[in-house]
Design a protein around this nucleic acid. Structure first.
Length: 484
RNA sequence: CGGGGAGUGGCGCAGCCUGGUUAGCGCGCCUGCUUUGGGAGCAGGAAGUCGUCGGUUCGAAUCCGAUCUCCCCGACCA
């Protein structure tokens, strides 16, 4: 769409300045606002409603796979964090500390949780005694604080909301299986509900979670060619069970350390929604998580409150009965045209226009946000048609994001090509890598790209090749990208 | 954390260099009337003490210092 043809004129087009567009979207669509303290934001009702939908849809899946929710304290004694050396090293630069309670200096500082492995490890050591106590499958929805130097709304904030699962198992295999099951669950969830295609795989050593044996992640390509980590699933091995002494007696009466996992996704997903689907006119929210799925705009002409509004309300009632999230915009102070633009900018998937002409002809005009296509739907077919259209929008948002991802995943042969792509349109770059952190480091220094994931084996792909940088023989296919 | 830019009614900005009466403009907001099928028009009105603290000066949005916050680039970052 040419700039001049855009109906929505109050925002910087995404194509003109991606970063500015992103920040404007958040504020103009009223997803969030800056709080007065550095790096902190207020999630406003419209943004929070998206998070609530994410929570609900993910929570269902977490419970369906046998996990239960619980809640652990916000504060963690310093000594707990210190137990796992790598964990401490990884997090200490960004921990916020409580040193005073009321007017009294604390004997031991308390960390505001940057993640909960330590406090949960401590509790698990009390709860787990026998093989009969296993597995422990607990999830918590919580807030997290990390004192980040550079922050961006939703993508990296000082305080954020997330879900963190923490499980303990009797065997290594069981914990590994859990790690992978959750990774798949995340992938399915994000692709189905957020309509964002992701790639999943293991993290390189450099990107591994502090204290984990292995970290797996789902990564998505944003429409500016940068990758965003959307969720992680960690196989913790016995690192935490050893230091927190989480042991159980097995059937043979041997004391064994448990095997653990932890995994999480955060409010960052809201940022991902904005960046993957948004366009020059604003947000394009997938129906499954959109706070409002259908906005009904009555055409306010003449005696519209008596002629048009009742019909609009009938339609609202009918759609509500289908379980849809519907709203009528009956504000008198705005013209229909204004409302069209407003809801377009805010990303509502489907708009229904109804005016005197439509009532006479017993149909409505529906306009889908993703394509801006208009369609006449007879009153009698609304209940049947609207859910289908919404599903189609959900699907086509995914398809177009997938197309973008495919078109921007480059299979390159030379480092020269690699550098050229990173200097221009970016995207995912698929190459062989020798496994040396030194090569990874050098590539990062020269191109800003990091290994997002080590690709799982794919029967369609070559198995052997040469490291893109040093040329050594390699059987590791990896995905490089510039990360958020 | 380093380099650069910026904070002036709700939003976007001008004024600052070369201190000087009531700090302007557009959008938005309020009231009224006319309107309403892709961001309506006219008339009237309200709202800022110039991020914050301190300094220079007869006088500071304007000069100086500190500090907070935001943006961009980099360093760092489950």
């Amino acid at each position: 769409m040419k700039k001049d043809d855009r109906f929505v004129k109050q925002i910087t087009p995404k194509s003109a300045d991606f970063s500015k567009w992103y920040l404007e979207m958040i504020r103009k669509a009223e997803l969030a606002d800056y709080a007065p303290m550095k790096g902190m934001m207020v999630i406003r009702p419209y943004g929070y409603a998206i998070w609530e939908n994410i929570q609900r849809l993910l929570d269902e899946r977490i419970k369906k796979t046998g996990h239960s929710n619980a809640y652990f304290p916000l504060f963690i004694p310093e000594s707990f964090l210190q137990k796992e050396t790598e964990h401490l090293k990884g997090f200490s630069p960004e921990v916020a500390w409580v040193t005073v309670g009321g007017s009294e200096e604390l004997e031991e500082r308390l960390a505001v949780r940057p993640t909960s492995e330590a406090i949960i490890g401590n509790m698990y050591s009390k709860w787990i005694k026998s093989w009969r106590d296993l597995p422990v499958l607990i999830n918590q929805w919580a807030n997290i604080v990390r004192w980040e130097k550079v922050t961006r709304p939703f993508l990296r904030t000082t305080e954020f909301l997330w879900q963190e699962g923490h499980t303990a198992h009797g065997t290594e295999q069981e914990a590994v299986d859990e790690t992978m099951m959750i990774l798949d669950l995340y992938k399915e969830f994000v692709e189905t509900e957020l309509a964002i295609p992701v790639v999943s795989g293991k993290k390189s050593e450099m990107e591994r979670f502090a204290g984990a044996s292995d970290t797996y992640a789902i990564e998505a390509l944003m429409s500016d060619g940068k990758a965003l980590q959307m969720g992680t699933s960690h196989f913790l091995g016995q690192h935490f069970s050893e230091v927190f002494n989480i042991r159980y007696e097995d059937k043979e009466q041997n004391l064994q350390y448990v095997w653990q996992t932890s995994w999480g996704v955060s409010t960052r997903l809201v940022g991902a929604l904005i960046m993957s689907h948004g366009d020059d006119s604003g947000l394009r929210l997938p129906p499954n998580v959109a706070p409002i799925q259908v906005i009904i705009v009555p055409i306010s002409i003449g005696n519209w409150k008596e002629d048009v509004l009742p019909a609009a309300k009938d339609i609202e009632r009918e759609l509500l009965q289908l379980g849809l999230r519907v709203k009528i915009d009956d504000r008198e102070e705005f013209t229909p045209g204004w409302k069209f633009s407003e809801w377009e900018m805010r990303g509502v998937p489907l708009r229904i226009e109804i005016g005197p002409r439509d009532i006479k002809n017993k149909h409505v005009i529906s306009v889908r946000r993703d394509t801006l296509e208009k369609e006449q739907i007879p009153f009698s077919e609304l209940s049947e048609r609207i859910p289908l259209v919404l599903q189609d929008i959900q699907n086509s948002l995914f398809e177009s994001a997938l197309k973008f991802q495919t078109e921007n995943t480059h299979d390159v042969q030379t480092y020269d090509e690699f550098q050229k792509i990173m200097d221009s349109q970016r995207g995912f770059i698929k190459v062989f890598w020798c496994g040396e952190p030194l090569c990874e480091r050098k590539i990062k220094d020269e191109t800003m790209a990091t290994i997002r994931i080590v690709l799982p084996e794919d029967p369609h792909d070559k198995k052997e090749g040469h490291c893109i940088l040093c040329g050594k023989d390699s059987n590791k296919r990896v995905l490089f990208a510039k990360a958020y």
